[in-house]
């Protein structure tokens, strides 16, 4: 128990009458790297958005780092401080500089003094290799740079778990690698990660487990060699054929 970062059991989610997630059971250990893939509309983004309650689930339970994700507002805020999220469209705050984007939440939600928060932010901006952009505004950066700032912003909360929601799918091809490099280095440092992505190279390189979802269900999960080498389910095979053939 103490080693589980995220435990989801018997979770169901509906949009009105549409059954978006069907009986999800998933345990993620601390330090584990999970890649979630599947066709569009299969519920992969919805699943990770349930983990920090950007989406509400109707049945079942989600436990993050020992805290039950229920209706308790205090619990929700606590979990959100411990679980970082990186979005497809970066979602930086355009009215704040890169540095302010990074220090906003540590200063307000963690009550960190400004100089301490700025020093920490600079450390993480160096880590994602854009310290020189600290005084610029998000709109003045390229997509790849913005996504790296978004990762630094999430890291500034010193999260236990990082969620990635298709972090490279809004990027131009030449910028994908700079973001993936940062993600690989995070994985090597032992960060617990759940990544929704179609970067199969990344999955092969760092994932401990690859999960395939279709129509709101977890269809198959396996270690990458097994997943890519000998997929068991027919739907997985079809999906892999489609995305790896081009």
């Amino acid at each position: 128990m103490s080693n589980a970062a995220v435990t989801i059991s018997g979770m169901n989610k509906y949009y009105g009458s549409f059954h978006a997630l069907k009986n999800i059971n998933l345990t993620v250990q601390k330090g584990e790297r999970i890649v979630i893939c599947g066709p569009s509309g299969s519920g992969k983004s919805t699943l990770i958005r349930c983990i920090n309650k950007l989406e509400e689930h109707q049945q079942g339970s989600i436990n993050v780092l020992g805290t039950e994700l229920d209706d308790n507002v205090g619990n929700i805020d606590q979990i959100r401080r411990e679980v970082g999220m990186v979005f497809q469209h970066f979602n930086l705050f355009p009215h704040l500089t890169v540095l302010e984007n990074c220090t906003l939440s540590p200063m307000l939600a963690r009550k960190m003094p400004q100089d301490e928060a700025e020093n920490m932010a600079m450390t993480y901006l160096e880590r994602v290799r854009i310290p020189e952009q600290a005084e610029k505004f998000p709109g003045e950066l390229s997509g790849g740079q913005q996504q790296r700032v978004a990762i630094a912003r999430a890291l500034c909360m010193k999260p236990e778990v990082l969620l990635f929601d298709e972090p490279t799918s809004a990027l131009d091809p030449e910028m994908i690698s700079e973001v993936l490099e940062v993600m690989v280095s995070l994985a090597k440092d032992g960060m617990t990660m759940l990544c929704v992505t179609h970067e199969m190279g990344f999955a092969r390189q760092v994932a401990d487990r690859v999960i395939f979802m279709d129509q709101g269900e977890i269809v198959e999960q396996a270690a990458p060699e097994e997943f890519f080498g000998a997929p068991k389910n027919e739907r997985t095979q079809n999906f892999l054929n489609q995305i790896l053939s081009h």
Binding site: N52, R80, G84, F93
Partner: peptide, 16 residues
Amino acid sequence: KGQVEAARSLGLSPWY
């Protein structure tokens, strides 16, 4: 919607 979601996902209280 993304900016508001990002702010919430950072653990900021509704007021912030």
